[in-house]
Computed example of a mutant assay.
Amino acid sequence: MEPLRVLELYSGIGGMHQALKDSSVSAEVVAAIDVNTIANEVYKHNFPHTQLWAKTIEGITLQEFNQLSFNMILMSPPCQPFTRIGLQGDVTDPRTKSFLHILRILPRLQKLPKYILLENVKGFEVSSARDLFVQTLENCGFKYQEFLLSPTSLGIPNSRLRYFLIAKLQSEPLPFQVPGQILVEFPTVESANAQRHTIIVDVMKNSLENKMEPNPPSDGNPPCCGKETFLFKLETAEEIKRKLQQDSDLSVQMLKDFLEDDDDMSQYFLPPKALLRYALLLDIVRPTCRRSTCFTKGYGTYVEGTGSVLQTAEDIQIENVYTSLETLSEEEKLMKLSMLKLRYFTPREIANLHGFPPEFGFPEKLTMKQCYRLLGNSLNVHVVSKLIRTLLG
């Protein structure tokens, strides 16, 4: 069997390419396309032999697409038009222009690709862009399945709930296909019948969202808690119970398996100003925890809602630090909070959680802020890799 010829759209730092390698499928990326010059530097650093086009997708002609002669598309279109903390402009957002161009080009290709995989944020599944996408797929003769998946389902201690669609050009349904439904687990052919009963209703979607995703950034004011009582931090008893349940799930690895062995982490410790301002809003995890919230592109710059922070003083009980914290002076408060030795996860640690192998690196000239931003815009390699194997299986 000849290697697959893969077109990687919105290639970023190369998460899709890495997932393709991770899947052990015989494939060649015939072209990777992205306009982000910094992301392209990282891509070239890790995949120097891949043809990389630093141009807008909407500027690529039908003839240029045909000349690439690809039979698989991997893509992760811009998520901003669909994210729940954005304006949700959907197809009216200028950033969807390139995706709409792809939908216009696809039916006109000299030869349709056999496989398509798309990744986006939760929220894409209820967008007009999604409706146009699946309509185009159906018109072209593709069979497809949609998913909402998080790395936690693969035993990775990081919540990153994302929308995925895999499609295959064929007349018969996929073995695991459940028309009109979104699966929340990876399918197996053996459990296809069981999967047919995995229906997502609004209640389940809300439940998943609350379980897997961090709260969006706010204006810094405490959230309205209704009749719920907040305990020593801005967490309800229910939230603490959920976190304890996650930490006791032995099917998920501990965070310590993903951490760097470096004695000098001083540059990653939270500055006093951030500690004082966001103390009650931090999602604090220890190396022995089996969970962490989604890392966003603002991690390291913004604190609230951008990802978990690590408590490196493991012998200190967090309750002892936070009890009566609000009654203390700033100096006393800072002294208490400093006992926890809270630090940001390093870019390498986030890359580890995202499934990038140790040999995947960043050019030395990149700043820490740039690395965080690129990783926040990337995807989980292992999740995509498993979906590729599922699609080709």
Rank of each mutant, 00 (worst) to 15 (best):
R196C: 06
N352V: 14
L250Q: 15
M1T: 14
D315N: 12
I85P: 05
Q145F: 14
R389D: 05
Q80L: 11
G307D: 11
A194Y: 06
D249Q: 13
L169W: 05
R108G: 02
Q177W: 08
D262M: 09
K386Y: 08
T367N: 05
A167D: 14
K297C: 00
H382W: 12
A19E: 04
P3Q: 10
K365Q: 13
T96S: 09
N158T: 02
L74R: 04
P357C: 07
S329R: 11
Y302Q: 04
L328W: 03
D249W: 06
N206C: 06
F176W: 07
G226E: 06
R348N: 04
S127L: 12
T61W: 07
Q181W: 02
D34G: 04
E319N: 08
Q245I: 14
R160P: 03
R130D: 06
I105L: 10
P222R: 06
N320H: 14
D22C: 12
P173Y: 15
L325G: 00
F124G: 05
L100A: 08
M212K: 00
A39D: 05
L337H: 13
G298Q: 01
Q135A: 13
V91G: 12
L87A: 15
L340T: 07
S338L: 08
E58P: 03
F345N: 00
S248V: 09
F176S: 10
L353S: 02
N215L: 04
L282T: 08
R373C: 01
I105R: 06
F147M: 02
V6N: 09
F186Q: 03
M212C: 03
F360K: 03
L183A: 02
S266W: 09
D263R: 11
G15P: 00
A39P: 02
H45I: 01
N66I: 14
S26Y: 11
I284C: 11
H45E: 04
R104D: 11
L334P: 08
V201E: 03
L100F: 14
V384A: 02
V25G: 07
L374C: 00
L132Y: 15
D257Y: 15
P271N: 14
L282C: 12
K122T: 01
Q67T: 14
L280E: 13
I60K: 00
L117A: 13
S207Y: 00
N36M: 10
M72H: 05
D131Q: 09
Y299C: 04
T327A: 10
Y372G: 02
L310H: 09
L132A: 02
I38Q: 03
F147H: 02
R162E: 00
Y344N: 05
E172L: 14
Q88C: 13
R108S: 12
I102G: 01
D264T: 12
L244N: 14
S378E: 06
C224H: 14
V6M: 06
R5N: 12
E172C: 09
S385N: 07
R196F: 04
K341R: 10
A31I: 03
H101Q: 04
L174H: 07
V252G: 03
L353E: 07
V381R: 03
K114P: 08
R290C: 15
G155L: 11
K336G: 08
F133Q: 01
H354S: 04
P271S: 13
L280R: 15
D257L: 15
G15T: 01
V321Y: 08
L379Y: 04
